[in-house]
């Protein structure tokens, strides 16, 4: 089976004064479509850097990232933005909702950035918010929602445009145990329903164990995965 996400000798270095700092060192991973994967490792191991490079948020120093069969390494910023807009979903540790938009307005952003609007998009957003248990809080602003509720809005936003792959950066990192459990369940359920590939960066080994593939990093090198 072809991988939806594949990296070959992916390396990221930063110039630090006269010396060069390697934060990701020739990492090779391959994630099949529709599967779930967790990137784990201690702080500073290069987890977020790997996620950023795979999601087209940053440029590699060397190596190749292939997403859905396409080499994204040399894409310019406009092409990367198009890729993110059409094929990728994101969930962040700190939710990253627009404070000046209501829950439903936040959810429809990715679809609208694609130029989709109208009743169909709104209905889909409303359906997703109901799916995450926020059907009665669609018109609420982020500051009127708890952390768990904000992350549920972020989940709905991540799925609105039915991305091929969803990247989640510590999605439960800012939440209590109960909320974390709920978010995890929702994430895996919706992922399954929509047949999306899920890549999670986490410190939580329990969460990682729930995924099909575990990619372990240490000091920028791939230990296992």
């Amino acid at each position: 089976m072809n991988a939806i996400l594949e990296t070959t000798n992916l390396t990221k270095t930063y110039q630090s004064g006269a010396s060069e700092l390697t934060v990701l060192d020739a990492v090779n991973i391959s994630i099949p479509p529709g599967s779930t994967a967790a990137i784990i490792g201690p702080s500073g191991s290069g987890k977020t850097t790997l996620l950023g490079l795979c999601a087209g948020l940053d440029r590699a120093s060397s190596g190749i990232v292939r997403l859905d069969g396409m080499d994204i390494t040399d894409l310019d910023e406009g092409q990367r933005a198009k890729l993110r807009r059409e094929s990728i979903g994101f969930i962040f540790q700190d939710f990253q909702l627009m404070p000046n938009l209501t829950a439903i307005e936040n959810v429809v952003i990715p679809a609208e950035l694609q130029g989709k609007k109208g009743s169909e998009t709104s209905a889909r957003a409303a359906q997703l918010l109901k799916r995450v248990g926020l059907g009665s809080r669609m018109k609420h602003y982020p500051k009127q929602l708890s952390g768990g509720e904000q992350q549920r809005v972020a989940i709905a936003r991540a799925f609105i445009h039915e991305p091929k792959i969803l990247f989640a950066d510590e999605p439960t990192g800012n939440l209590d145990e109960e909320s974390s459990k709920l978010i995890e369940e929702m994430l895996f359920e919706i992922n399954k329903e929509l047949d999306t590939t899920l890549v999670i960066v986490t410190h939580d080994n329990e969460l990682a164990k729930k995924t099909q593939h575990i990619i372990q990093l240490k000091g920028g090198k791939l230990i296992s995965g």
Partner: peptide, 15 residues
């Protein structure tokens, strides 16, 4: 903060 989020979600530089 807002713009970076929108860019992450796929907004083009034109948008």
């Amino acid at each position: 903060k807002e713009i970076v989020l929108l860019r992450t979600l796929g907004a083009s530089q034109g948008q």
